[in-house]
Amino acid sequence: MTDISVNSVSSEKNAARIRLAQRIALRFGLYAMLLVFALYYLMPLFVMLTTSLKSLDEIRTGSLLSLPRDIDFTSWATAWSGACTGIQCDGLQPFFWNSVLLSVPAVFLSTLLGAVNGYVLAQWRFKGSNILFALMLFGCFIPFQVVILPMAIVLGKLQLAGTIGGLVLVHVVYGIGFTTLFFRNFYVTVPQELVKAAKVDGAGFFRIFYSIFLPISPPIIVVTVIWQFTQIWNDFLFGVSFSQAGTQPITVALNNIVNSTTGVKEYNVDMAAAIIAALPTLIVYVVAGKYFIRGLTAGSVKG
């Protein structure tokens, strides 16, 4: 009797030890896999960064994955102010400012319109307002190729062809759907009784908006601004279709630098230019990643 119980105790202990070892092995495997994935995602950024700091010689002779022997910032300087985008050789600098000039008003306007539209569609519904919302939402999903041709004609008629103003208009119009969706889904969670209470208190449509709804909106404003900024900064299709030499946004300029066929291929300058073009949205992402992710998921999952 006693033997058996002693045995069972020691086998219990053994089993526990094995379970523990299994757990540790499992955790180790888990972290190893996560690490491998992390390296996969980081590798292109690493390559871009190291390549941009190498000299052309080192690039040709060295390895893609090696660290630069001497850190050399000249390609960054070239990318910023000397690289050729076609015939012009002023680097990315002017195009960077074009993108800023274009994003700021477009983000502001589309966010503002989205806020008031969302407010109406969530809290002041009327007969048919859900259909209006569906129609606006559908506008987010169209392939923009289908509007490019008529847009080019209309921008021409409005004397906005090839101007930054024209691009602002385009981005606002095609951004409204998403911004409206964001605000509408945010405001829909606000109890309707709040509007009722304010109505009984004597406040009207606009008063309720700026006294009650706007003050609760900072989280969704941040999400929307980040989303819109990322979209507009990273846009290429509208930029390449509706701009001309002096008004191109940075993505178009980057593509021109990389694909310019004149002269020696300067991979380090290409990479420095790519990082410069990516930097604003990357910074936003690192600083406010939480809101960025919220925007991404809000854009695809209905609230």
Partner: peptide, 10 residues
């Protein structure tokens, strides 16, 4: 997730 913040051009 950071690649999602990049432009497809980059």
């Amino acid at each position: 997730l950071y690649p999602m913040a990049l432009s497809f051009i980059v």
